[in-house]
Design a protein around this nucleic acid. Structure first.
Length: 112
DNA sequence: ACTATGACTGATT
DNA sequence: TAATCAGCCATAG
């Protein structure tokens, strides 16, 4: 597997603040991998637990959960988000909860 | 080498 | 608002 790409995706996801959400495509873009939204999903699945990557803060572009409604994973995600104050309405987050990173700061932290 | 797969997207209906 | 569809493209096997 392409470890370096996954690393960048993980590092980028790590920048999402608690209480905010981002889309798969958004993370891909910020990680320097435009058009690779699906790769983000895969990378999150492979993320080492000790890295504590906030996978639950990543949603689809329409702000809905990527998992089937009612599934165990979806419920866990909803729970995690609720803890951070992100309320889901029909499995959908509010626009104001979407992360809008300061690009300058992000670039500095990720130093790509 | 191939190819099926998918935690996705945007456009269209 | 919601469902469908074609396009997407690196990865895994």
């Amino acid at each position: 597997m392409s470890e370096s790409k996954y690393q960048r995706i993980w590092q980028t996801a790590l920048q999402i603040p608690a209480g905010k959400v981002a889309s798969y495509g958004q993370i891909a873009d910020l990680a320097g991998l435009p058009g690779r939204a699906r790769l983000v999903g895969k990378a999150l699945g492979y993320a080492p637990k000790e890295l504590e990557v906030p996978w639950f803060r990543i949603l689809r572009s329409d702000r809905r959960l990527a998992f089937a409604p009612g599934s165990e994973t979806a419920e866990e995600q909803r729970q995690q988000l609720l803890i951070e104050g992100v309320i889901l309405k029909n499995y959908r987050a509010k626009p104001q909860d979407v992360w809008q990173p300061d690009l300058g700061e992000l670039l500095f932290k990720l130093n790509y």
